[in-house]
């Protein structure tokens, strides 16, 4: 039986608003598809070989926590970039997503360098951008809605027309509340502001990662799971968001 290894970056510190639920979701779905999985916890000082993992996950963190991991993350930057270019599936949420850009603004309005993988920067809004959010996304090959909860001060602006958003906002704020973009997709990496957590209520996105992991191993994932509860939960919040127009 195939085994998949998911690297969890800074599990103690980078986990806001139930982000760890994304890993619970991926692991259970892998199990239901008939595969085993392991979590490889990556923290300070560990020097992981990213090519021995099938996916990399990093959740959001508060300003204090980002400061604690910052130096260590920057030191892992080159390896992470290579993993990303090689198509390793990656999910980076909220402040982890912001760190992928060129710069972001912290709570004291200092501009801090990011990892610089992409040409985007994150400024700080006066008021928190918060609430349920719904997107249209085409990353799975066909159009689907994605639901979640956003809660951020960061306003992310693309400075490169070639950057692809994760989705287009139907209701909510997204990257900055202005241009209608939410998150970013590049190869098998998704950066996004969506908590909720993201994957349980959006099984198509969870399966996007699972298929990408399997494909890299030359494995074809067998047919779909019974997602009736997932779809019920998705539609329940979707109806709620769209009703409030």
């Amino acid at each position: 039986m195939a085994e998949f290894i998911i690297a969890h970056m800074y599990p103690d510190l980078m986990n806001l608003y139930g982000d760890r639920g994304n890993l619970l979701c991926l692991r259970k779905r892998l199990q239901w598809y008939g595969y085993q999985s392991y979590i490889n916890e990556i923290s300070f000082a560990s020097k992981p070989d990213y090519h021995n993992v099938d996916m990399i996950f990093m959740g959001g963190g508060s300003d204090r926590e980002v400061k604690l991991i910052y130096q260590d993350l920057i030191s892992k930057g080159a390896d992470l970039k290579k993993a990303m270019e090689d198509g390793i599936p990656m999910l980076f949420i909220d402040s982890a997503y912001q760190l992928l850009g060129q710069a972001y603004m912290d709570a004291d309005e200092n501009l801090i360098d990011g990892l610089g993988f992409f040409k985007f920067s994150t400024l700080r809004a006066k008021n928190r951008l918060t609430g349920n959010i719904i997107l249209n996304s085409t990353i799975t090959g066909k159009e689907c809605t994605v639901v979640g909860f956003e809660n951020h001060y960061g306003c992310t602006y693309f400075q490169d027309d070639n950057l692809q958003p994760f989705g287009r906002v139907l209701k909510g704020f997204g990257n900055n509340g202005e241009d209608g973009y939410e998150g970013l997709i590049y190869k098998n990496l998704i950066g996004t502001y969506l908590h909720g957590p993201l994957l349980p209520k959006n099984p198509e996105i969870a399966d996007f990662f699972i298929k990408a992991m399997a494909e890299r191993r030359g494995i074809t994932v067998k047919s779909g799971l019974d997602d009736s509860i997932e779809h019920f939960a998705h539609n329940q919040v979707k109806d709620k968001i769209l009703a409030r127009s």
Binding site: G21, C25, P200, K201, F232, A233, Q236, V237
Partner: peptide
């Protein structure tokens, strides 16, 4: 409740 679906999902993913 209003978010019965989310709760059911959580219980499902708890195994």
């Amino acid at each position: 409740g209003w978010r019965s679906g989310d709760m059911a999902l959580r219980v499902k993913y708890a195994g």
